[in-house]
Design a protein around this nucleic acid. Structure first.
Lengths: 230, 230
DNA sequence: GGCGGCCGTCAAGACGCCGTCAAGAACGCC
DNA sequence: GGCGTTCTTGACGGCGTCTTGACGGCCGCC
């Protein structure tokens, strides 16, 4: 399911967008302020952000910068300002598209599809299923099964799942502790390495054949963690 | 170097675009017809296509479809048509952005930068892998493997890794001792050459086929160290 | 030929990080 | 409102890493 975060201070527009997007099968989160938008982005991990620049609390580029500090999520900007300067500064701050108000819903939806298509072409095109000798991870279905004789499903808590997902999507690359904390707990975290120890241990108990001798969730001492699939 | 294919039937606009883009360091290919555009795209593999929809020979969506049949190159559409329907059909045909004429050059350039940024984020533009006869260093994954019969992974401590990374990124250039100390241990270090001796020796033990006769981690007496990849 | 500087090596203590256990707080479900 | 699960937070022991000092060999210089 594709999750969209819509940020705008006009309630009416927010409701209209929500209805239109939900009718087309998207999951929608709503925020009326920049702060709330940054919170929601950190907690719900949207696949794309639709961001009005005329927010009461934060400047538009501040919100963009706040997001770009820790995520590459696509950002489509809505704005009443038509000047080139406004467009250039928003795009260069990290926005992916810039739509001027008033806009047609059909056009916005088309730009949304184009943005999602481009974003997915980069990252999600790989197989979202990772299989090892001992378990299978289906990223799309959010499901993990252990191959212990009869396949049994493994229950993961939301936090455990997010952590596993970040590690798996890294594709065998090493992920540093602060980076994991940013992506799982949000941008304001970065030093709470004890969280990681806690949840990595839990994942190992649920997935590893020998939790005390990890084979898939590897610790790189002093740096971070790595997922290796045989 | 980034290569851009500009397709438009107005010579004047073509020339203006060409000058502007080349002034900013892009390589530019020009085409005045859809057929020529498809030929050029196939032969020169541009990094992005700027496509005017009002071409004499082919319909705009046909050109987009012709490109999308074999490449995911980003396409920025230029068009004099302002209707939503035109935008939707172009975007759904595979375009990444839609700019209506007349447009400002600054805006187009900003959208170009945004599109290129998004496209590069997906592909992992660099090639941070260094391979020698005896081992492979993957800077992105933070991993080193030795080619001793069966490839075995080499475990490096954080300090060892940072030191190796600085030397490798220098690209075969000589790096002085104080410079290495600055980059690995921090700006307040610069005289502790014994640290370097300690960790260079450790890296040689882990990587060199004959640690006593270094082949890759070379000492330049009185100056510093150098990494050479065969 | 003697001397000094630089580099490679070894060794030992201090320190930080990791895995683990445990308990309180927050949340959702019945 | 009670209960179970999940999340947060703290503490502790063990082990690996970092830091630091010392020594010997090689080379160039005087």
């Amino acid at each position: 399911m594709t999750r969209i975060l819509v940020v705008d201070d006009e309630r009416q527009l927010l409701r209209a967008m929500s209805i239109n997007l939900r009718a087309r099968g998207y999951d929608v989160d709503l925020a009326e302020t920049g702060r709330r938008a940054l919170e929601l982005a950190a907690s719900s991990h949207p696949d794309v952000v639709i961001l009005d620049l005329g927010l009461p609390d934060l400047d538009g580029t501040e919100v963009i910068a706040g997001l770009r500090g820790w995520t590459q999520v696509p950002i489509i900007v809505l704005s009443a300002r038509h000047t080139e300067e406004a467009k250039v500064s928003a795009l260069d701050a990290g926005a992916d598209d810039y739509v001027t108000k008033p806009f047609g819903m059909d056009e916005l939806l088309a730009r949304l599809r184009a943005t999602l298509r481009r974003a997915q072409a980069g990252t999600g095109s790989e197989q979202p299923v990772v299989e090892t000798d001992h378990f299978t991870i289906d990223l799309a279905a959010t499901r993990v099964t252990r191959h212990g004789g009869a396949d049994e499903e493994v229950r993961l808590t939301p936090t455990e799942w997010q952590l596993l997902e970040v590690l798996v999507r890294a594709g065998g690359k090493l992920v540093t502790g602060p980076q994991l904390l940013h992506e799982v707990w949000g941008p304001q975290y970065g030093t709470e390495l004890n969280y990681l120890r806690q949840y990595v241990a839990q994942l190992r108990r649920k997935l590893e054949p020998e939790p005390s001798a990890p084979r898939y969730l590897i610790t790189e001492p002093g740096i971070g963690y790595r997922f290796v699939a045989d």
